[in-house]
Design a protein around this nucleic acid. Structure first.
Length: 507
RNA sequence: GUGGGAGUAGCUCAGCUGGUAGAGCGUCGGUCUGUGGCACCGAAUGUCGCGGGUUCAAGCCCCGUCUCCCACCCCA
């Protein structure tokens, strides 16, 4: 019986990343860094600044932004109560005074959930408390003191500590919240922001869809809704993708009208859909009620011919919207941005209006959109801010990376510049100093922690993909001339420390 | 949430109609204590995803469950 076997018995069950999450590891993370760095560069050239909103926000913020009707709020967000303890309820009359004291404190320190505060303000608590105190002190004038106590207890039963918060499913709502919170309407308009980071959605994973996924996005808030802004936003994403050499990029654009013309079109569409209802599948039939626009992006083959004959929103835009859309297209042409019009491109949520766009790339299976965006002029106001124009997009970074990998753009493992092959205690100190000098000059250096056989050291250098091996033994320490071996061709040369640094800088 | 496919060594996978677990690559060691890639030799690593059932006997058959993949739903 080996020790290993005995230990195994005590080994706890394996931990693994929870469903829909994963580790990003080297060398893949090098690609992630390149993508993110490129985004910073490009967005910077368009005058955008970075915003880093919190990972979680009140559930209500996201719920209001997406409009509480869809599945999104009900089951696709990671929602929890940030402090789920319950108030210990003292039902005996004698303790009630202490309990009330505590409730009052909690109110003042803001630890009662917003929901509970809405139901039962501090005023009500004070009011009821006073009655109870009077009762306890025997000075009650209430005819029905026991009923007051009962009411109070019932109210406290419903009292909850902690607020509903959610992990952010997207960042647009946060950006808008921040715009309002920091009075950014007083800055020069428009305010141009970009962000990148993890988002969370409680969905069934599939290709390019994870529960913790990453987005890179940008928002333009405030100022005008001039078509040039729409076009420049799109131009920026396309420039970014070009710089990354993303393959098979296709931009689709559309206009979905405004609060004036869209509802009329939706009703027309609904009426037309009802005429052909029995030819549609169950999903589409359901959408006639819930969200007729979404029938347009049905993937069911048999429905395609029917959908093509439906009325198109482009023919039903109001004059302002039609003009705006035409101008956006002109501005895109002006910038040399190639696009395809897709009248069936709709966004799922109410707050989108006018310009919508989507970018697809190759190698992504059925989830092939890498970027989606659009104009959302009413959103800031909906969240309690001033009337504000807005437009933005979000890039699915996971999918972007996936597409880059599929097209063979994956980076190679990062090698070291120099591997220090040192031998003997005499060389040890020299090796440490050499490593320090080389690293501070910016080179990546591998310094073996323990002495190795020389042949093995070179073998390690090779496996790690080092460009050079710096050989330090008794000879080098005595003479002060170090040996540098070029691994690729096996040549070597003798160099003093300054010569070595000089040589490496030039190579 | 729904449907289909799949889980065997670190990785890629083989394993016949049930009969006690294998290869290649990788890792580590040796040949080889001042010269790497090559070659040869050797070693380690598996509760065959997990739990239950059938059987004298289960990686293989049955049931459940978890995870992954693909698609649907949804899509911020």
């Amino acid at each position: 019986m080996s020790e290993g076997a005995a230990k195994k018995e005590e080994k706890p069950g394996k931990f693994q990343a929870i469903r829909g999450t994963r580790d990003l590891l080297p060398p893949e993370t090098a690609l992630w860094n390149r993508v993110e760095q490129t985004a910073r560069e490009i967005f910077g050239t368009f005058g955008y600044g970075e915003i880093r909103p919190p990972i979680f926000e009140p559930t209500e913020l996201f719920a209001r932004a997406v409009g509480g009707e869809t599945d999104i709020v009900s089951k696709e967000m990671y929602t929890f109560v940030d402090r789920s303890e319950k108030l210990e309820l003292h039902t005996s009359i004698g303790n009630l005074g202490v309990f009330l004291q505590k409730v009052r404190q909690l109110y003042k320190s803001g630890e009662i959930s917003q929901e509970s505060q809405d139901q039962m303000g501090l005023e009500l608590v004070e009011n009821q408390s006073k009655k109870v105190n009077d009762l306890l002190a025997g000075t009650s004038k209430s005819e029905d003191a026991s009923r007051d106590i009962y009411t109070l207890i019932m109210l406290f039963e419903a009292l909850r500590l902690g607020n509903d918060i959610s992990l952010r499913p997207e960042a647009t709502a946060s950006a808008c919240r921040a715009y309002i919170e920091h009075n950014m309407q007083q800055l020069p308009q428009p305010v141009k922001l970009y962000y990148m980071g993890p988002m969370f959605r409680r969905e069934r994973p599939q290709k390019g869809r994870y529960r913790q996924f990453y987005q890179i996005g940008a928002e333009v808030l405030g100022g005008t809704d001039a078509p040039a802004i729409d076009a420049e936003v799109i131009e920026m994403v396309m420039t970014f993708f070009e710089k990354l050499e993303l393959k098979g990029v296709q931009l689709s654009v559309n206009s979905i009208g405004c609060r004036e013309c869209r509802p009329k079109y939706v009703e027309l569409l609904r009426a037309e859909l009802l005429k052909v209802k029995d030819k549609l599948g169950p999903d589409s039939q359901r959408r006639i009620d819930t969200n007729p626009l979404r029938v347009l992006d049905s993937k069911v083959k048999e429905e395609q011919a029917i959908i093509e004959k439906l009325p198109r929103i482009g023919d039903h835009l109001c004059k302002q919207c039609a003009d705006h859309y035409a101008a956006v297209k002109r501005e895109l042409d002006l910038r040399g941005v190639k696009y395809r019009e897709n009248w069936r491109l709709v966004r799922g949520l109410d707050y989108y209006m006018r310009t919508t766009f989507e970018i697809t790339a190759q190698g992504l299976g059925s989830q092939d959109a890498v970027c989606g965006g659009g104009r959302y002029d009413g959103l800031v106001e909906l969240l309690g801010g001033p009337p504000t124009k807005g437009i933005g997009f979000a890039i699915g970074e996971d999918r972007l990376i996936l597409s880059l990998q599929e097209s063979g753009k994956a980076p190679v493992a990062q090698g070291r510049d120099v591997y220090i092959a040192w031998m003997g205690e005499n060389a040890r100190g020299t090796a440490v100093r050499a490593a320090k000098a080389l690293r501070s000059a910016g080179f990546s250096v591998e310094l073996p922690p323990v002495e190795q056989k020389f042949g093995k050291a070179l073998g390690q250098a090779d496996k790690l993909g080092a460009k050079y091996a710096l050989i330090l033994g008794d000879n080098e320490v005595t003479s002060g001339e170090w040996t540098l071996k070029t691994l690729a061709d096996g040549t070597q040369q003798k160099l003093t420390e300054p010569q070595l640094l000089d040589f490496l800088r030039k190579s």
